[in-house]
Design a protein around this nucleic acid. Structure first.
Lengths: 346, 346
DNA sequence: CTGAAAGCGCTTACAG
DNA sequence: CTGAAAGCGCTTACAG
């Protein structure tokens, strides 16, 4: 007997078995007391009839939809795939669907996106907020993924510790003069990363920060960073707060005739998808997104399922968890070598 | 009077106004005949009471959820953000939410992801299928975004025309010997792009295809493409089927001591987020994702809302629409110049 | 251990 | 033009 196609419901199963829908519901959910002998019969019949529970019916009755909303600052952000994939996986594993909302880099759109998701009845929200935004009461539990420096309860990678990983790595390689590269002095994430680098390098190397102009897709041709000038001044390593900046550094150094890492080491941050594919492959720092996502989703789910209280204006407490980052050493970072200039002047 | 907080429903409004829920429903939806004088009163009261329609109630009654599923071959794919953003926007504009599903690069997971979305009651599905997968009946309308060479009804960028754009561009710049770069001879998308390039270059330049090994995040250090060898043999332009390959070409050429584009032009494909940020900025080809998404979503919505028949086993007909791509000329592609070698040997 | 009943919020024929 | 009623599919007290 082939499984039937058209959606059967609890009533169909109950009728087929001569029992009540309540009993079928209980047998399937394992909640109410049902005679042991009935459970397998119900299950089998449900299978045979191709029973798929109606989420709408369940949602109407329970007031829960089994869906989480994911609000991102800008889907076009290159880091987004990692986050979205991790959240989708964590949510799926917990039995939840993932509805996406895009802030398109705009606070007003972010607010609107949150409202739309709430109207759709999401049970909880994972928000990666736009810089500087605070998520207020959203009529549902919210988990925030952000920098550790953000006030309030958040889950996030430990950007500072990640920075320290880079700093320690470069110090161990013998670098004495390191140029740090960022593009936004107002970014908590960037500052955390830079602070970590500074900490780990202090006592080992001179450090200088170069704030480049904010990233623009179509910047002026020829607007270079003058890395060559810094190299001439003795810099042997460039540590960027993002793979994007690192890539820019590598390509500009190459173009200026320097070799990476023979003349200058370069490190990035985030392990974007292409960072292993360039030549030389980029040394970078990776967040454990799956862990971050799992923490965010599970705290949310605990509140949704009533196992935790929702503290602090409905924002989920995660004890401001910091998830350690890990260093991915590839070919752009190497030991300091004497430059050929110094070698030839001996 | 401040707007009330707790979710009001149709019954609350009806009670407040002394009319029936049916009337309120009709007034709000504009469907049933309601006296003109009542409509604004109902609307106003709904606003004042902070009425938010229950999607669950509506879904249970109408059998529609107002949610579309988006199934992606691999969220980690760098092209994904563009697609997801466009679909989310198009769906949102049409009044639909977007539930995501990730195939994680695995056909079995893809099938499972589709099932999960269908179980969640999505009204339709936008699928970017894994290579070689055909989406069969999914119990809901499906729009497929894929290569034009894929059998069946799909929406897609016109990859071949995009390739021709690159070819024509390089031909116009005077290149006589062009190396095409791909990594998967079985990919319909890549072959379409290459065919377009070949077409446009034929009669103008000698063309050769280099299939590099499939992209791996952590490839063997030092596995280079020997682009230098090709350059020595007279190649003045490298046209890649992806920005990723183009990036690899640029970095390897740099490292081999060639300048881009002075010695060798390089072009990519897809306009990934970083392609304007490298130095030199990457010449590439961009798909009109918003248009593609709009076509996919609107064909889906027409079927869902009963304005079109669902043809061909529930797969939405889009007349196999081909959306033209556009060339983004940046700094990696330039006119052929005599090499300094030849200049100095005169 | 099992069943009858209520009700989540909505929309849609159907009667008035 | 408006209202009473049914019913989408489910779960959960409550009686038996």
């Amino acid at each position: 007997m082939p499984p039937q196609k058209q959606a059967a419901n609890l009533g169909d199963i109950a009728r087929a078995l001569g029992v009540s829908v309540a009993t079928v519901s209980n047998a399937l959910s394992g909640k109410g007391r049902v005679s042991a002998s009935l459970v397998p019969r119900v299950r089998e019949m449900a299978d045979r009839m191709g029973y798929v529970p109606s989420l709408a019916g369940r949602a109407l009755r329970t007031g829960r939809t089994g869906v989480l909303g994911l609000v991102l600052p800008d889907i076009a952000n290159p880091l987004f795939p990692q986050i979205a994939q991790a959240i989708e996986f964590a949510a799926g594993s917990a039995g939840y669907g993932t509805l996406i909302g895009d802030s398109r880099g705009d606070s007003a759109v972010q607010t609107e996106a949150i409202h739309r998701l709430v109207e759709r009845g999401v049970d909880g929200l994972v928000v990666v907020p736009r810089r500087g935004t605070r998520i207020s009461d959203a009529d549902c539990p919210v988990a925030v993924i952000d920098s550790p420096s953000t006030p309030g309860n958040t889950v996030s990678a430990d950007h500072r510790q990640g920075g320290a990983l880079v700093g320690a790595h470069l110090a161990a390689l013998g670098h004495r003069r390191v140029l740090l590269l960022g593009n936004n002095p107002a970014s908590a994430v960037q500052n955390d990363r830079l602070d970590g680098m500074r900490d780990a390098l202090s006592g080992h190397a001179e450090v200088e920060v170069l704030w480049i102009e904010p990233y623009e897709r179509e910047r002026e041709p020829g607007s270079l960073l003058d890395l060559a000038g810094h190299v001439a001044a003795g810099v042997t390593a460039v540590a960027a707060v993002s793979d994007l900046h690192a890539l820019r550094a590598v390509t500009e150094l190459h173009r200026a005739g320097h070799r990476v890492p023979e003349d200058v080491s370069v490190t990035g941050f985030d392990d974007l998808s292409w960072s292993g594919a360039i030549t030389p492959a980029l040394t970078t720092v990776r967040a454990d997104m799956l862990r971050i996502a799992t923490i965010a989703v599970s705290s949310l789910v605990r509140v949704i399922e009533g196992k935790d209280e929702a503290p602090d204006g409905f924002v989920v407490s995660t004890d401001a968890t910091r998830v350690p980052m890990s260093l991915v050493v590839r070919q752009t970072s190497g030991p300091v070598r004497r430059t050929s200039y110094e070698e030839t002047t001996r």
